[in-house]
């Protein structure tokens, strides 16, 4: 890893306290594939940041570096630094498991645990914590709160004890969001969360994302530029593993600085 002095600082020199996550010269590989190349950028706190770019541009890999999920894949490798509220998450002695409770993640396809009820799914993240015996009251509090935050409560209120596989795909995805919210993370990572959903469910998830930034920072990877325009405050454009441009969403979609961004926005990359 490069010495701290030589690490470039991000252009957006916001006060540190307003930065939820900061990548410094971040590189990531799958075996010999260099998926993320020298990315340095800030994800501001209490904003929704969208990462867009063509397939294979490294946007999902970048996201997975932020909660150290990338390293769970065989032959994966990471270099550089990622600061989470000032702490280097790749420093020695950092427990990725503890990190992941602060940085929640939701995937492309709904992943409810099929052996658990809706209620147990919501509480799963809390129960995962070793040594903490969760009181029944604390669990009830979380089961009553997280589904509300995920705009799911009205649909599952009477069936919390039913299997989580019995609800619709859109509801399952919001259940996964509720499950991630249950641990009260500071940052929520969304990896194309609406890719497998119908338009109505998509709209519900988008409204939810818009609400969530009031209480946390959200980073969303999407292949859908309209979605990025609808839900995000800032947009990052990536191409072939490199970060090309980061700007307020309105600026990216109206007056992008980089010609490559413009080409992509106007549909020339497909």
């Amino acid at each position: 890893m490069a010495a701290a002095e030589t690490v470039p600082m991000p252009d957006t020199s916001a006060p540190d306290a307003m930065v939820a996550m900061r990548c410094l010269a971040l590189n990531a590989w799958f075996g010999t594939t260099h998926a993320v190349r020298d990315v340095t950028l800030d994800f501001p706190a209490h904003e929704v940041t969208a990462i867009i770019g063509p397939s294979g541009c490294g946007k999902s890999t970048l996201l997975r570096c932020l909660n150290r999920m990338h390293e769970t894949v065989p032959l994966a490798r990471v270099e550089g630094r990622v600061l989470f509220h000032g702490q280097d998450i790749y420093a020695d002695g950092v427990d990725p498991i503890a990190l992941r409770r602060h940085v929640g993640m939701v995937f492309q396809r709904p992943t409810p645990f099929p052996t658990m009820s809706i209620r147990d799914n919501v509480a799963a993240g809390l129960r995962a914590q070793p040594g903490v015996k969760l009181s029944a009251a604390a669990q009830d509090e979380v089961v009553g709160r997280a589904p509300r935050e995920a705009a799911l409560w009205d649909e599952v209120e009477g069936r919390l004890k039913e299997s989580a596989t019995g609800i619709s795909g859109g509801q399952q995805q919001r259940l996964c969001i509720a499950r991630a919210l249950a641990t009260s993370p500071h940052v929520l990572l969304l990896d194309e969360p609406t890719a497998a959903l119908d338009p109505i469910s998509t709209q519900k998830v988008e409204e939810l994302v818009y609400e969530l930034r009031k209480v946390m920072s959200v980073i969303i990877v999407t292949h859908n530029m309209q979605q990025a325009a609808r839900v995000s405050d800032r947009t990052v454009f990536m191409l072939m593993g490199e970060m090309i441009e980061m700007a307020p969403t309105r600026k990216i979609f109206t007056t992008p600085t980089d010609p490559r961004t413009e080409s992509y926005i106007t549909g020339r990359f497909g």
Binding site: I89, K214, M216
Partner: peptide, 18 residues
Amino acid sequence: PPRPSTPEARAFPTISLG
């Protein structure tokens, strides 16, 4: 919305990563 923590605490958290 009402949460168990104060807004200030959420904005400037002290986080132990283990």
